[in-house]
Each structure stands twice: as structure tokens, then as C-alpha cells.
Write a protein that binds this DNA or RNA. Structure first.
Length: 109
DNA sequence: CGTGTGACTCGGT
DNA sequence: GACCGAGCCACAC
């Protein structure tokens, strides 16, 4: 059986690298990651990279949320994402992180 | 090479 | 806080 090998782009590689460093119980935002890889305006590209993320759960993409704390995306189900975050002690309400103080990088503050 | 799309963000109303 | 529009980046076709 053939294994699908998603094309890993240089940008995606950087995204994984940064996302991978997010400690347990911490969060980050797409914009923050974009900034961390040197593309502060590439938040969308970051999202695409995570969407194609082949290294899971090596890359804790569940710890990446929107700048407003909104849980977005997650191909395997947003429901799963919420569960994983709660499992790390993060309080979530209505698909939104209520504790943005746990954000690793906080660009909006 | 132009167009469309997406797990985004910001500013104005 | 919500809605809308525009800017921005990378990728697939």
C-alpha cells in the first residue's frame, strides 16, 4: 500500500518547527507563528501548513488558535481539538479559549 | 502566469 | 462584541 506523502514546503517546515516548541498547557496564534517564522502577514499560510501537517501529534497543532482565541479548523474535527486542549488544562467555551494568558506568543497584547 | 481558495488579521462602522 | 471589507501569503489547477 502506498503512503501519501504530502508535499512539505519550506514554509510549512518552519511552521512545524515553531509549533513543535509550544509547551504543554500553552497556546499560540497563527499570526504569532507567522511572525516567528519571519512572515508576520502569512497567518493564512500558517493555517494551510498546519492543515497539511503530516507530523501529528508530533506537531501540536491543537495548541494553535486564532488571535481572538477562536478554535478554528482542525481536519480531524474541531470537537477533537477542544477535547485535547481541555485535556491540557485549558478552559474552552463555545469553541473559544477563555484563557488567552496561556498564549505562548501574544501579538495582540 | 492568472485565478481561486483557505485552520488569518486588522480597521472601520 | 458582531458584521463587513480589504490586505496579505502560499499553494493547487
Amino acid at each position: 500500500m502506498k503512503k501519501i506523502i504530502p508535499p512539505i514546503t519550506p514554509l510549512a517546515s518552519l511552521v512545524y518547527s515553531v509549533t513543535q516548541q509550544i509547551p504543554r498547557g500553552r497556546l499560540s496564534t497563527y499570526g504569532a507563528i507567522a511572525q516567528a517564522i519571519g512572515r508576520p502577514r502569512a497567518a493564512r499560510a500558517v493555517g494551510q501548513a498546519l492543515n497539511r501537517n503530516p507530523y501529528w501529534p508530533v506537531v501540536p497543532c491543537q495548541r494553535v488558535v486564532g488571535s481572538t482565541g477562536q478554535l478554528t479548523g482542525f481536519a480531524t474535527g474541531l470537537n477533537k481539538k477542544r477535547q485535547l486542549l481541555q485535556q491540557e488544562g485549558i478552559v474552552i467555551k463555545n469553541n473559544c479559549v477563555t484563557d488567552l494568558a496561556r498564549v505562548f506568543y501574544q501579538p495582540h497584547l
